[in-house]
Amino acid sequence: MDVLYSLLDVDNQRLDTIVQEKTFTNTLNFVLTTITDDVLSIADSILDRFCISILPKINYNVKSLILESESMECILLATDYSKLTELKLYNVNDHIVSRYFTDESPFRRIFQEQITDLILVYNSDTDMLLMNPNTKYVYEYTLKLFENLKHFTVIGCVQLLSIDDLASTTWLSLNLNKLCVDVCGFEDCLALLDGRLKQLTTFIVNIDSPDDDLSTIYNIDDLPNMKYFSLTCRCPTSEYDTRVLPLLCRMRKLEELALNITQANMIINHFNQSM
């Protein structure tokens, strides 16, 4: 980013050619992290120059964008990104989701047809009491709009994923192979692994209340495609034996396992790279 901003359009054709190469243009990061870990967009003056003068010249090389949600519209509308497949979005909130993750989104085509890797990092200051009721549908909105997603990660969303009472077609995806998400209960974890995500090879899940009642009978067939599984939760010994172990037994071709499980006054940390 600094190279592009400093050296592009400085009346030197050779420099222009060099800085437009893939090394400098494949991945563009438009966010800044403060010493307190707050994430901000780059300065308006720099952003304006990128949108007006720089991005239209390098758009054909851009494959990955790292954006702050408030500046997303300016950047995505600056030019056509024919090779863009990866998007990491910071400071996401319910207003961003309801405005841009719908069929009326100005980015519908690029979201629907191009994006395969999506990481949403929520604003850590989000107040649960002020959230839009539609926030609970963020996951549904996303999977419905981003039809070609292969990797989906949600970080810091105060609205935990809960799908145990939804139809099995709600979270159906034939493309998704990596999912990183926080869920309400163990039943939600079982629901995600009931066959609706058949291509899932990597599943990283944090379960908030693993001792929830299992009121629904889910498909418990083997998960032959699962290669990496990471589970974080609080779990009584009895629940570990009756829920976690049977789940692991379904992953017969697992290659890597990471467990971070709290049992009363004991913490189980397990990481195995070769199962």
Score class of each variant (00 low, 15 high):
N269R: 14
D222L: 10
I261G: 03
S124T: 12
T237S: 15
D164M: 11
Q13D: 12
T79Q: 05
Q263N: 14
C74N: 15
D48T: 15
D164C: 15
D188I: 08
S168T: 06
R196M: 06
M128D: 10
N175T: 12
I54R: 07
I115P: 00
C189M: 11
V3G: 01
L174P: 10
L248E: 01
D182A: 04
V10P: 01
D194A: 08
Y218C: 02
T34C: 06
T27G: 13
V158S: 05
A258T: 15
I115E: 06
L143C: 11
F50P: 01
L174C: 13
L192D: 05
L32C: 11
K150L: 11
D44R: 13
E104I: 07
T169W: 07
I163V: 13
L130M: 04
D211N: 07
K144V: 03
D213P: 04
M128I: 13
I217W: 08
Y60H: 13
V10L: 08
L15C: 12
V138Q: 12
S274I: 15
H151E: 13
L161C: 12
N177Y: 15
L129K: 08
F107K: 07
S168V: 03
L248T: 09
D182Q: 02
D127W: 00
T116N: 10
V39F: 00
R108M: 10
I220V: 14
Q112G: 11
L174W: 09
M128E: 12
H95R: 15
L160E: 00
F107G: 06
G156E: 06
V31Q: 00
D194E: 13
P224G: 02
D117A: 09
K57R: 13
R99Q: 13
K83N: 11
N91I: 03
D9K: 12
V62P: 01
L55Q: 06
Q112A: 12
Q13M: 11
T169L: 08
M226N: 04
Y228L: 08
L129H: 00
N272V: 05
W171N: 14
A167K: 05
I35E: 14
I75E: 08
F271I: 11
L172K: 09
D222V: 10
D208V: 02
Y137N: 13
T153Y: 05
N29T: 09
L214A: 02
C157P: 03
M72A: 15
S71Y: 09
I115F: 04
I54M: 09
V39R: 05
V158L: 07
K57F: 05
E68K: 04
